[in-house]
């Protein structure tokens, strides 16, 4: 029989080599390019440009604002839906259908889902005709090319993540806590505020952080719904790599986004672990 180290080496050699070559090294190349000038000297000018220039501040501002609004709206919509699925649906088949409906968007391309909103949010789209028919607005509202349009698309794309994480957190809560609270005379509302909600907060927070990270790094949805009127950080990164070909400045933008996303993910897993305790 072969020795354990030889077996391990045989098992991990290929996966390790592949991921070093096509994952870690490419990212290192980007990091290196972001810190060097065209002549190969070490420089921080690209980062200085990203962080200290008002044009970038406005793009970062739009990106983060959209991320924040998306997260808040996802939480506000996701919590009741998760609650409904976990606590209120009694018919198993219907819950299955609902879960499929929530997961289905994750199995369709962002492009397809954003395209649906392009049809819906157009000047003569369904949303505008409803708004006019119900007398809520006099003239059709412009959605495409505005932050509102992008926001509607991002919330739609990311809502399933929140519903799934909150739903899992709610499903894990031991109902005996709530029964104890009720036995001690607390009303349904009071039990919810003092027992159930606090127990579900770690799940909600880690879901929210995940959504925020995904929202600020989303490219397809903002690109399609912005109609060229709004620019977010991922769109700027794509421009640098696909048409400007400035790998140094593009690299600094990419590393900024990457570092931010990693920090968010780290925070989410920290919160998740605190919740598991």
């Amino acid at each position: 029989m072969k020795s354990a180290p030889a077996v391990v080496a045989g098992l991990v050699a290929l996966p390790t080599a592949f991921f070093l070559a096509f994952f870690l090294v490419p990212l290192a190349v980007v990091a290196l390019a972001s810190l060097t000038s065209g002549e190969g000297d070490v420089t921080f000018t690209h980062y200085a440009r990203v962080l200290f220039d008002s044009y970038h501040w406005s793009i970062l501002g739009v990106t983060f604002r959209l991320g924040l609004y998306t997260t808040v709206i996802c939480l506000v919509l996701g919590y009741p839906l998760a609650w409904y699925l976990v606590r209120m649906v009694e018919w198993r088949l219907w819950r299955r259908v609902c879960v499929i409906l929530i997961i289905l968007p994750l199995f369709t391309s962002n492009i397809v889902r954003s395209f649906g909103w392009m049809i819906l949010l157009g000047r003569r789209g369904l949303v505008n005709s409803w708004l006019v028919d119900f007398g809520l607005v006099d003239r059709p509202v412009r959605f495409i090319g505005t932050e509102t349009g992008i926001l509607i698309g991002l919330v739609y794309i990311l809502l399933p993540f929140v519903v799934l994480t909150i739903g899992n957190a709610l499903a894990k809560i031991d109902v005996s806590y709530e029964q104890a609270s009720a036995d001690l005379g607390a009303g349904a509302m009071s039990t919810f505020w003092h027992v159930t909600l606090p127990l579900s907060i770690p799940g909600a927070v880690s879901g929210a952080i995940l959504v925020f990270a995904l929202a600020v790094s989303a490219y397809v949805t903002p690109a399609l719904l912005s109609g060229g009127q709004v620019t977010v950080l991922p769109m700027l990164i794509f421009q640098q790599y696909s048409s400007v070909f400035d790998f140094h400045y593009g690299g600094a933008l990419a590393i900024t986004l990457l570092a931010f996303t990693l920090a968010m993910i780290g925070l989410a897993s920290l919160v998740g672990r605190m919740g598991a305790r």
């Binding site: 490419p26 190349v29 980007v30 790094s217 990164i237 996303t261 990693l262 993910i265």
Partner: peptide, 15 residues
């Protein structure tokens, strides 16, 4: 968990 856009850019540059 990494933004695919960043990975795509990295692979283009490395490639």
């Amino acid at each position: 968990v990494l933004p695919h856009l960043v990975l795509g850019a990295a692979l283009l540059q490395f490639g």
